[in-house]
Write a protein that binds this DNA or RNA. Structure first.
Lengths: 238, 238
DNA sequence: AAGTGGTCTAGACCACCAG
DNA sequence: TGGTGGTCTAGACCACTTA
């Protein structure tokens, strides 16, 4: 049995999150100062500070030198701000989703992917390529590396009946994700899959997802620019 | 004379950025360890660590416990989850921002733009085109319609010394925004401004912003795909 | 003037990865 | 085993805000 030790700053973060989530601390309430938290949790000020700092970066808190730390405003929402299942999105548009599983296999990691997955060059992982269709029209190619240590049964799935995202969410619940969005000209084989001309601009989203155990998966989602669009809606309620 | 002191960790960050950008440190090269940087800059390890940490969060570096810190892929990157001032973003990369004001005038609204601004076809509004440069390289074209009722003095500004975003934020604080992101082939005149070939894919962000009084502005931000990238970092603590 | 956050130091112990 | 990053401490000085 491996007992994973929870860092002290994580305990403090969770404590603050719980206060906010439960409503005990409302928007724009003052939260305890670094010194108060340090004393309360019997840690150094630097450790209490880190908890406040990270929650600030995550947008839950707002800090103001000289005056204090306050609960931020809720909140941003959008398809970019949440990780959606493409099948659900398509169905919500009243359209029909289906998928083709092009590749599903083990793979030996190169240096770059290994580092991004938190593994080592030469380690084995899983790789899948799934093409998603909306009303019979190919709309998105999903190329995905999966950490085989965290999701050992990935190769036994049938991704024509469940999306990789859906399966991964059930096996290793998301705790964190990063997106990088670029406009690219897709490789010619990708263009063939998507049934577009080779000089069509494509939106490419690289998504890295974490569970509490570490990096779960590294996905490259490519879609033709004229068929697909990302949206986000932010609100700032002062 | 106000002398702004640069924090030590910022100096180290800029040094590392410069090494990467100049090509002295290539992708996946190992960068100096915390201890090496601490000695080199005569700072404590915690300070050197902070520089590496923040650059990692910004996506320029990748860290791996036990093996070291490595250069990630370098591209300009901006966050999707907050509305940032492009001049600030560029300065945080240790680069120099400047802008050219191509157009600044009154304009009669067509049907589509009028509706998006919450006005009526034929109403007058303001229109600006500003080209943003990073280290002398044209990086983003900003085309913006502005609600003249909410920001009456827009035409009197000099957008080479303050960005439209900065000015609008001071005049009509943001309460809400929407983004739509697409990959497009830019019009030929836009390509000329951005100094790119006409078949280069571009990231195009359409941003509509609200203040408490209504729709403030409608901006189309176009950037070359190979120079610019959008990023977001999500956490799920709840 | 007191309290707050912002920066920084000079140590420490640990877990992990390499040779 | 030695180097790396991850966490943590117990101080310190500064800039800023509020009273």
């Amino acid at each position: 049995m491996t007992q994973i030790k929870t860092a002290k700053f994580t305990v403090i973060k969770q404590h603050i999150c719980q206060k906010i989530e439960s409503g005990q601390w409302q928007q724009h309430d003052k939260v305890p100062s670094e010194n108060e938290l340090a004393e309360q949790f019997s840690v150094s000020r630097m450790t209490a500070r880190r908890a406040l700092q990270e929650l600030t970066e995550q947008g839950l808190l707002i800090r103001s030198q000289g005056s204090g730390t306050f609960v931020a405003t809720f909140k941003s929402q959008s398809s970019l701000l949440e990780i959606r299942n493409i099948a659900d999105e398509i169905q919500e548009r009243g359209h029909k989703h289906h998928a083709l599983q092009m590749i599903l296999s083990g793979v030996e990691l190169n240096h770059e992917v290994a580092i991004l997955l938190g593994l080592t060059e030469g380690d084995n992982a899983y790789y899948s390529e799934v093409l998603h269709f909306e009303n019979g029209d190919p709309i998105q190619l999903e190329q995905r590396y999966v950490n085989s240590k965290l999701v050992p049964n990935y190769l036994q799935q049938d991704f024509t009946i469940i999306t990789p995202h859906e399966y991964l969410s059930s096996e290793a619940p998301l705790t964190e994700a990063t997106h990088e969005i670029e406009a690219v000209l897709a490789a010619s084989n990708v263009c063939q899959f998507l049934a577009i001309e080779t000089n069509t601009p494509c939106l490419q989203v690289k998504r890295r997802t974490w569970s509490s155990q570490g990096v779960v998966s590294l996905a490259t989602l490519t879609a033709a620019g004229h068929k697909y669009r990302l949206g986000s809606h932010l609100t700032f309620n002062f």
